[in-house]
């Protein structure tokens, strides 16, 4: 039971990331009908928003501290971040410590702008072109974005720590009345899971309960008719692209304490997220989310020692195996609508 629970928990953080990226991919595919290979790059840019904010907040100037001396007896030069000067020492330290969650505030406008520019500047011209062309041009875009980030931040991963209070682990088992110490789980991964849940719930609520969302859903079902009703559906779809970019970006921001951002992290996640989208069903939002968590947890179970000794290497290939089986037996995916991309 403990081991079982631990594997589920272990699968959650990766599953959350898959689900968030797959959600954005599906939003774009469902609204615009575009297969976006640059979506992983958006995830990566989000992560680098956190890195950037961390670097900006860390900017400091040297001040001579009269009370302390270095080992030669001279007055000690200490680095004082500018945030300390602006907000005072305690508030400044808090802001520096919480830079990753605060990066959300930076990432939202940045990702929105990037998403809208991408859609208006590039993707718009590819609606009428075949899917292969869309894959190719976004693949090229992903390379370009990745290389730009590499040019600015270098090729090495940049560690970006979580706030002090959320570092450490919790004894998850004790909460549920199991034996103390049986299920230890890092706090930040729990945070990530709840964060993903909130974002997913937010996106669904937005689509379900707002007029804007209603129009978008109508547009997903029948774009032409909505256009004929005098609604500027293109502008709304552009905003949806921006929203998908925000979702990917936020997934990236919050993932930085789990995985130090590097320039190719987006591509690594993209390949798996595509598999997730296909398993969930092209164009199905609940399918994407469900498949994301499902595959994350499945992967975690496959990497249990008991399973690995029975089927060596299964942890490496389980996701692809599932995808192949699903594609061959039920090409519309778990929750996909009949007839969507089903050829």
């Amino acid at each position: 039971m403990d081991a079982f629970l631990l594997q589920i928990l272990n699968g959650l953080d990766k599953g959350s990331a898959y689900a968030l990226i797959a959600l954005g991919l599906t939003l774009i595919f469902g609204t615009l009908g575009v297969v976006n290979f640059a979506h992983g790059a958006l995830f990566m840019i989000g992560a680098f928003c956190a890195v950037t904010l961390n670097a900006i907040l860390g900017l400091s100037h040297q001040v001579t501290d009269p009370e302390r001396t270095d080992f030669l007896g001279n007055p000690l030069q200490v680095d004082v971040p500018y945030v300390y000067d602006i907000f005072g020492e305690s508030a400044g330290a808090w802001i520096l410590d919480w830079s990753v969650p605060l990066a959300i505030l930076l990432a939202i406008p940045v990702m929105l702008v990037i998403g809208i520019v991408m859609e208006r500047g590039l993707i718009r011209h590819f609606y009428k072109r075949p899917h292969a062309d869309q894959i190719l041009v976004t693949f090229g875009l992903a390379i370009v974005l990745q290389e730009i980030i590499k040019a600015f931040y270098g090729a090495n991963p940049i560690p970006t720590p979580a706030p002090d209070a959320l570092r450490g682990s919790v004894d998850f088992g004790a909460w549920l009345g199991l034996q103390a110490g049986s299920v230890i789980y890092p706090v930040w991964r729990l945070v990530y899971f709840f964060f993903a849940g909130i974002i997913i719930a937010g996106v669904f609520a937005f689509l379900q309960f707002t007029t804007f969302g209603m129009v978008v859903r109508a547009g997903m079902a029948d774009r032409e008719t909505v256009g004929l009703l005098g609604i500027d559906i293109d502008r709304r779809f552009t905003l949806m692209f921006g929203l998908a970019a925000i979702v990917a970006g936020l997934a990236g921001v919050m993932y930085t304490p789990i995985l130090s951002p590097n320039y190719h992290m987006g591509m690594d996640f993209l390949v798996l997220s595509f598999v997730v989208v296909v398993v969930g069903g092209m164009g199905s939002l609940p399918g994407a989310v469900a498949a994301g968590f499902l595959l994350g947890i499945l992967q975690s179970f496959a990497s249990m020692n008991a399973v690995k000794s029975l089927l060596p290497g299964i942890d490496q290939i389980i996701i692809y195996l599932v995808a192949i089986v699903i594609l061959l037996t039920r090409p519309r995916g778990l929750l996909g609508r009949k007839g969507v991309m089903e050829e």
Binding site: H131, A132, I135, F274, Y320, A323, I324, L327, L328, E343
Partner: peptide, 17 residues
Amino acid sequence: RRSGIYFSILTLAFAQM
């Protein structure tokens, strides 16, 4: 057995495996 993007993903999955 599949075409379009599904074919791309199937081949990708086999290669990654």
